[in-house]
């Protein structure tokens, strides 16, 4: 039942995103060299590029959807599923790798039950690998909610997820309390 409702909500969400995409596309010139900047625009506004968004973009630029798909999937920057509320990125740049970044990623994967590149079912967390974020002196590094966490260890992974979950519980409890009042 709850899943059904979530799916329905997801549909509405996607509808909203698509109509936003159509209206923002109108502001851009229909030239082919705008393809990548437009993909970037969509991702910036919505955090990802929905499949139908690529079709709309193809129509706008008078290209085939497969061409747009081919270009979008070529570049690492674009993601095709919605990011989680708490995006987690683990650095696997050279320095972090040498200091065990892989182990940190594995611990996040185990704790969250998803693989790199995926989002948890409740859309709370998404997990990605990134290359050097430029603070190799703090290796291994993870970026949680856009904040850099240096000198990561497996127990720090546990601590970070725990504190995010506690925060969520707290918010939920407060919301429930507001509801009953």
């Amino acid at each position: 039942m709850e899943v059904c409702r979530a799916l329905e909500q997801g549909d509405k969400e996607e509808e909203r995103i698509l109509s936003d995409i159509s209206s923002s596309l109108k502001l851009f010139e229909r030239k082919r060299s705008n393809l990548i900047p437009l993909l970037q625009m969509i991702q910036k506004r919505h955090g990802y590029i929905p499949p139908m968004g690529m079709v709309l973009l193809a129509q706008h630029l008078d290209l085939s959807p497969s061409h747009v798909y081919g270009v979008a999937t070529f570049y690492n920057q674009f993601r095709f599923n919605p990011p989680g509320k708490h995006p987690i990125k683990v650095c696997l740049g050279t320095a972090c790798h040498v200091k065990g970044g892989e182990i940190i990623l594995e611990n996040f994967e185990r704790k969250l039950g998803i693989k790199a590149g995926e989002t948890t079912r409740d859309r709370e967390f998404s997990l990605d690998r990134v290359a050097c974020v430029g603070c190799c002196a703090l290796a291994p590094v993870a970026i949680v909610n856009d904040k850099v966490e240096g000198h990561m260890t497996p127990s720090k992974v546990e601590g970070i997820i725990l504190s995010l979950e506690i925060e969520k519980e707290k918010k939920k409890r407060e919301a429930d309390k507001d509801d009953t009042e």
Partner: peptide, 21 residues
């Protein structure tokens, strides 16, 4: 958009033109 090969000159040009790099 984050493709290592786009640092290469001719690939970089392709990507500016809106194609696969």
């Amino acid at each position: 958009s984050g493709a290592f090969v786009c640092g290469e000159e001719t690939a970089l040009i392709k990507s500016i033109q809106g194609e696969r790099g």
